[in-house]
């Protein structure tokens, strides 16, 4: 689906189901934008992002961490706004500004699921090294 040259992702995820699973009380303020009403609830940001698959989360600074038995940590934070249209860059920035006015310090945290990202070889060489 294309809109003004942008590719809008089909929403495969049942976002209402995800919000319910995380105990998030939300108000839809625009198509693809949800204001969280119970912002004092600590949420596992990474797990929420994984379940939403594509989103921009506007959150508080980290409030805690969830350490996994297999190594690694998930960040716990308060969620202020959830933007599910990640391709609409300006929408995420708009709500970053709105959230900043409302809550002060806000973290912009975007996520897009990419299965190709599982195994990559990433490195950087300086001039003369290669």
């Amino acid at each position: 689906m294309c809109e003004s040259g942008r590719v809008v992702r089909m929403e495969k995820v049942d976002v209402d189901k995800v919000f319910k699973e995380y105990g998030l009380e939300v108000q839809q303020v625009e198509p693809s934008v949800y204001k969280v009403l119970n912002t004092e609830k600590e949420i596992s940001v990474d797990e929420l992002q994984k379940d939403l698959e594509y989103c921009v989360l506007l959150t508080s600074e980290r409030k805690g961490k969830k350490r996994l038995s297999t190594g690694g940590c998930y960040t716990l934070a308060y969620i202020y706004y959830i933007v599910t249209d990640v391709d609409n860059i300006e929408l995420g920035y708009k709500y970053d500004n709105i959230a900043s006015q409302e809550f002060g310090k806000v973290i912009y945290d975007s996520y897009e699921y990419d299965p190709k990202g599982e195994c990559t070889i990433d490195t950087i060489y300086a001039r003369g090294e290669i």
């Binding site: 994984k50 996994l68 190594g71 998930y74 996520y111 699921y113 990419d114 990202g117």
Partner: peptide, 22 residues
């Protein structure tokens, strides 16, 4: 340097080590 999930898949693998910076 806390180990974070792979930013593309949110998986944890022994072979890669991601960390969050801001």
């Amino acid at each position: 340097l806390e180990k974070a999930a792979n930013p593309a898949t949110k998986a944890f693998n022994r072979e890669s080590y991601f960390t969050k910076i801001s």
